[in-house]
Simulated assay, not measured.
Amino acid sequence: MEPEKFLEILSVAERLKCNTRHSWTSNGRRESVAEHSWRLALMALLLKDEFSKLDMDRVIRMCLIHDLGEAFTGDIPTFLKTEDDEEKEKREFMGWIDSFPPVQRSEFKALLAEMELRETEEAKLYKALDNLEAVIQHNEADISTWLLLEYELQFTYGADKVGFSDYLKRLKEAIDRQTTEKIAAEGTVPAAAGERNCDDLSEA
């Protein structure tokens, strides 16, 4: 890859450092899309021994590129994202990838097609970890940042993605226990949590 093209691609990807998600960090600031993608890739790296039969390097590549389309659209919360939003993100992302050198263009398109179909164990694992990372991050954030709907979403989000793996089912159970403890420590579900305007959110 020519240095100029390399720098051009990195410049677009840098937007993920600036684009924030609905999730908050443990020290009280909005999480960036780049931070979510980084920790998702770290999760896959840490689980290589648990999924020794899978191509975990491929899973890590999926984790690193999965949200690059949000460089063009920003991040929209799952509970607000429409089909039109998804189509716009995919169109702009694929248009950008078409400008890549042939080798990288081919690799990215192959990975994205596999991720979309979610038929391989690698794609299933990437998607499960993607959902679980978001739930873990919410548990690490102050509960005052949660919307009312997230008290239930913390338990349901990602639950449909872990069934293919005994390890992931145990991981989800451990996360759910943390969620239960966090809510119990709060005492009650505050009515004020439901008063936050979802339309003001830019991502999830």
Rank of each mutant, 00 (worst) to 15 (best):
R29M: 09
P102L: 02
G95R: 00
E121V: 04
L64W: 03
Y126V: 05
S37R: 02
T20P: 08
K109V: 06
D176G: 03
P3D: 02
W38M: 05
L10V: 11
L111V: 02
D166F: 05
E195Y: 12
L129P: 03
S26E: 10
L117P: 07
S11M: 07
T25D: 10
M62P: 03
R177F: 03
A123F: 08
A185H: 14
L147D: 06
E195M: 11
E203M: 12
I175N: 01
A113D: 09
E195R: 05
L16I: 09
S26Y: 14
E50A: 06
D98Y: 07
T120G: 14
L46P: 02
D98P: 06
I136N: 10
G194N: 07
S26F: 02
V12E: 13
A159K: 13
L68K: 09
F100A: 01
L149Y: 12
R29P: 00
V12K: 14
L168R: 00
I9H: 13
L68M: 15
P101R: 14
T188N: 10
S11E: 13
D176M: 02
E107P: 02
N139G: 15
W146G: 00
D57T: 06
K90P: 06
Y151D: 07
V135G: 02
A193Y: 04
D160G: 01
T120D: 15
E195L: 09
I60N: 00
D130A: 13
A184W: 13
L168T: 00
H66W: 05
P3H: 02
L64M: 07
L149P: 02
E186Q: 15
V103M: 15
D142G: 11
R91C: 03
L149R: 15
L129N: 02
I183N: 01
T78H: 14
K161P: 00
R58E: 15
L132Y: 10
G28A: 10
T20F: 13
T145K: 04
D176F: 04
L80V: 01
R29S: 09
L148H: 15
